[in-house]
Nucleic acid binder design. Structure first.
Lengths: 205, 205
DNA sequence: TAGATTGTTAATCGATTAACAATC
DNA sequence: TAGATTGTTAATCGATTAACAATC
């Protein structure tokens, strides 16, 4: 029963399914059951089948799911069949690590533009890309048709950075600044703050 | 009505409340209402009041919450009144960035031990700390009484690293390797995988 | 066929919201 | 006091799970 209006929480699990399927491919699996996939993910088989049922019928009764086929279908659903160009704003230690991270391309992303506001860094080359002046963001992001950005600037600069990105038609922002940013409706934001993740665990210690 | 058995999802929001309260302190606020706090977080006021009610009564009717008091109470609840020593395993580009990140201490964490398996790196100093051989993890983590670790090793080494950490009595793991790791009951895991976060957003593009 | 696993429904479970008495 | 906001209950909403007919 495809496309009712898929809950956010279901969409959030699809990348995890995809990631595990790709490991299964590497391991040589051709077929996987919802039970085995769930075991690897710590998710119930029923939930996996229910989640997938939002988008169509991908399995075979009595057999399971063709790993490569389900992987390709999830890539299609998540719009990561190709490679999205991504802008990275902020090239400090974290920005450097992200620029050099070689795990993005196979997942559908490539950092193609890097920005910083430090005159000492502008013009330098990181991971084969020149660091541009943040002042040139509007022009360059527009020229490259960038829709996705990673924000790795200090908290104090995060909201202003995001405001510029939104005006440049960026519609998905991965925010590493440890602060809540606000965006207009229709703009996606995901936040990564290691301290928040750690504090969530210390509650149980 | 304190301590029923607080849902995970509620615990997960507390660090976000705390983070926002600390920004409010910086901005000079002394009192905040659930409405204002919710506005900043994109969460309903009712939810904030309900979440807090799991742990006690922290507000004043007609007034709101004393910002400093609520912040200190949340720190107490989350066990981040002091500073936890943290082990960092894997000192590549990401590990370097984490070792040099200065945002941890005020949030209750300090990276005190760094490990890598690369002979060329062992013995070098990063962020004022010597990089130790991963072979020495059991002894050093035990000696320092470490309960929290950050895993920034390649996916291929992640599970083995985690297995060692768990044997060393580590009970909270922040995993940056893009793979599902398995741990015994009672060990907390949080995962950070930028590609997963990005793919969750491309669905909507 | 016999065995296994899907896709889906209905039931259960849990989380969020609305509303308001209590009270500062 | 009057106005405002909390803490909490009950109602609503949504997500997960159990179970099974369909079927490979």
């Amino acid at each position: 029963m495809p496309t009712d209006k898929v809950p956010d929480i279901v969409v959030g699990r699809l990348p995890l399914y995809l990631r595990t399927l790709n490991y299964l491919i590497e391991e040589g699996y051709e077929i996987v059951s919802s039970h085995e996939l769930g075991r690897r993910l710590g998710i119930s088989p029923a939930q996996i089948r229910k989640d997938l049922s939002h988008f169509g019928e991908f399995g075979k009764q009595g057999a399971g799911y063709d790993v490569k086929y389900l992987s390709s279908q999830l890539k299609h659903i998540l719009h990561v069949e190709g490679v999205w160009p991504v802008a990275l704003v902020g090239c400090g230690a974290l920005g450097h690590a992200l620029a050099n991270y070689n795990g993005f391309v196979t997942k559908g992303f490539e950092i193609t533009l890097i920005f910083d506001n430090d005159p000492a860094k502008i013009g330098q080359v990181v991971a084969g890309k020149v660091i541009h002046d943040v002042a040139d963001m509007p022009r360059l992001i527009c020229e490259h048709g960038i829709r996705i950005a990673i924000v790795a600037v200090p908290s104090s600069a995060a909201q202003a950075t995001v405001d510029v990105l939104v005006r440049c038609q960026v519609r998905a922002i991965l925010n590493y600044a440890p602060i809540n940013i606000s965006v207009p409706p229709g703009v996606q934001v995901q936040n990564i703050d290691p301290a928040v993740h750690l504090q969530r665990m210390t509650y149980y210690l």
